[in-house]
Design a protein around this nucleic acid. Structure first.
Length: 612
DNA sequence: ATTTTGACGCT
DNA sequence: AGCGTCAAA
């Protein structure tokens, strides 16, 4: 029997130590987390990914590569790919991007040790490229799509980062539930349908056996899955198939979480790693989050989250927060509102500490921007120009690839943006007493419509982009608009949405790509048309008004607009730089480029983001 | 914590 | 258009 109401089933899938697996596979080494060789990926002298065998040997992320090699003598250290400008002999001196292999992999096990990685030459002349991982990421998403292909009209996939996706399996689980018939033969051996059985309960039990070992929170996993667990068992069964397909086709392991929302599915995928999956039954959501440090939950890692945490101190976990702030009437949200001074924040925190979350899975498989950047010390216009040339070539080449992937009908890149970080001038720094160091190295940007290449060609080539980038870097008089040294250069192109130009030929399901999803149940009879309709209806009802700034906020501590220091509410001048409250300029500022800039406030980001 | 990304929000 | 936040390897 199908359940009368079908809960939302969300899965979070996370590749295990992704860069390390990509490098292991590229080098034809085992990616098995139990038996593979210890391996870590370094970027300059620091480690950015460490596989599980290396972790067991005591190697950690951020560890210095030399220390890591001492800690684990058999460690295979692989440097991320680097590229450089290169004068090709056969190419009349034209500059192109060359993959560069001059950075030696430090490896005590393999004889001669090369030059130290932080020696001046390599890092000053090379740039990291993450292309290997972008390519691998695309293959993983393709594999996921393949595994779910027979349900492709029913699934929503959101890429959350280079190695994470959320998948909304609600419709697929509903479909497998409502279309189930006794002893139905699968169309093919690998068909993504429930195992053949005489009853639905037996089919779900068989699915659970196939998905084993899936850890489950809220049921001990023994015997026949209880009714409340059935949709989660089916979701786990699907995700086990997906993970198997990724392993079989790409040799990558990943971990997955299945739950009723993104918040808990993400916590679930992190709970058992590597190469494991976990499902959380709805009654266990609160238990699942109860003792996790709130600061480690999505959205609480940054400034806004820390501000919330500060207001709730000393409570740091959902359990403590619920105990401390549930008011006399039993309302957690009202209790939180008294300390957070914001309806939106109170609703958000109340939901999170209860394991509730309405964020929809928003399909976003199209790349929205292409960025290339280089940090370093660029001392003069010639150096800046050389790096801009390299960044331009990289962006041009990636834009050409993306254009190729999308086909000729694809929209064109709209904007070229140059970001640059330059220090304030010495006069200004000398006047600085105790300001925020970050404000000494402001990052600025200039952008312009991306121009076509020679003869109106699209996409523009590297030289064309380099010319445009240089125009953004310099004034009309041809002088750099920032002082040297410049410590960071970044070039970006933004790609269009394509929703408007494609609407004629568009798949109906894609029109619901941005639908908002209400928490709670969706009628199983809703699949698929009514689910889409319900989702579409929810779109309008979920719009929230931005929070008004409360009187409490006006008498709250303020951030200096000039140096960002937090000042007491009673101060009218910044204690660090002396700027008047509300003024973006310190009294003696001499920086020509200084612009009026509003410092971020604690309310930023809460108006629309957290609908609760 | 590093650097190199990428998405998205606010003004 | 420009700046800022948050997150991941």
């Amino acid at each position: 029997m199908a359940p009368a109401r079908m809960p939302i089933i969300i899965c979070h899938l996370d590749l295990d130590c992704f860069y390390a697996q990509v490098e292991a596979r590229r080098l034809a080494l085992s990616t098995c987390p139990l038996s593979g060789p210890p391996l870590a990926v370094q970027q300059w002298s620091g480690l950015i990914a460490v596989n599980y065998p290396a972790r067991r040997a005591g190697v950690t992320r951020f560890m210095n590569a030399t220390v890591a090699a001492q800690t684990c003598p058999s460690l295979r250290l692989v440097h991320v790919q680097t590229i450089s400008t290169h004068k090709s002999e056969s190419d009349s001196g034209e500059r192109r991007i060359e993959e560069d292999d001059t950075i030696p992999a430090q490896n005590n096990n393999h004889g001669a040790q090369g030059a130290p990685l932080n020696s001046s030459t390599s890092r000053d002349s090379l740039k990291v490229s993450l292309e290997r991982y972008r390519d691998a990421s695309r293959l993983v998403v393709n594999a996921i799509s393949e595994a779910l292909d027979e349900h492709k009209d029913a699934i929503l996939i959101q890429k959350a980062s280079i190695d994470e996706v959320y998948i909304d399996l609600t419709s697929v689980v509903a479909k497998l539930t409502t279309t189930w018939t006794p002893n139905e033969e699968s169309r093919t051996a690998n068909s993504l349908s429930l195992p053949r059985a005489a009853s639905f309960e037996e089919a779900v039990a068989a699915a659970w056996r196939e998905a084993a070992p899936t850890a489950c929170v809220g049921w001990d996993g023994d015997g026949t899955p209880p009714k409340v667990a059935q949709p989660y068992v089916i979701g786990s069964f699907i995700m086990h198939r997906v993970r198997s397909h990724i392993w079989n086709t790409l040799s990558y392991t990943c971990s997955a979480g299945v739950a009723k929302n993104k918040l808990v599915s993400k916590l679930a995928s992190a709970r058992n790693k590597p190469n494991k999956q976990t499902c959380i039954l709805p009654d266990s959501h609160q238990d699942m989050v109860a003792d996790i440090e709130l600061s480690s939950i999505n959205g609480f890692g940054g400034k806004a989250g820390k501000a919330v945490l500060a207001a709730l101190a000393p409570a740091t976990t959902p359990r403590q927060i619920r105990q401390t702030f549930t008011d006399a009437n039993g309302s957690l949200e009202d209790g939180l509102r008294r300390v957070l001074h914001s309806r939106e924040r109170a609703a958000w925190v109340a939901n999170v500490v209860s394991g509730e979350n309405d964020d929809p899975v928003t399909p976003n498989l199209r790349v929205k921007s292409i960025n290339a950047c280089k940090s370093g010390t660029f001392s003069n216009a010639r150096e800046a120009r050389e790096w801009l040339n390299l960044l331009s070539n990289e962006v041009a080449s990636r834009l050409a690839e993306e254009t190729e992937r999308r086909g000729r009908a694809a929209g064109r890149a709209k904007t070229l943006t140059l970001h640059f970080r330059g220090k304030l001038n010495t006069d200004h720094r000398d006047n600085w007493v105790a300001g925020n160091l970050a404000s000494l190295t402001p990052e600025r940007s200039r952008s312009a419509p991306l121009a076509l290449g020679p003869g109106g060609s699209y996409p523009p080539n590297g030289d064309s982009i380099a010319t445009q980038a240089w125009r953004l870097f310099t004034s009309d008089a041809g002088e750099p608009i920032v002082q040297f040294p410049v410590t960071r250069l970044q070039l970006a192109v933004s790609l269009p949405d394509e929703t408007t130009e494609e609407k004629g030929a568009q798949d109906i399901s894609a029109l619901f790509g941005k639908h908002q999803q209400k928490s709670g149940d969706v009628s199983s009879s809703a699949f698929p048309a009514a689910a889409a309709a319900a989702a579409a209806a929810a779109t309008t009802s979920l719009e929230q008004q931005p929070a008004a700034v409360s009187s409490a906020a006006r008498s709250a501590p303020w951030s200096c607009l000039a140096c960002t220091l937090e000042n007491a509410a009673s101060s009218s001048r910044c204690e660090a730089c002396g700027a008047l409250k509300g003024s973006s300029l310190p009294p003696t500022s001499t920086l020509a480029l200084e612009k009026k800039r509003r410092a971020p406030t604690l309310l930023d980001g809460f108006a629309k983001k957290r609908s609760g």
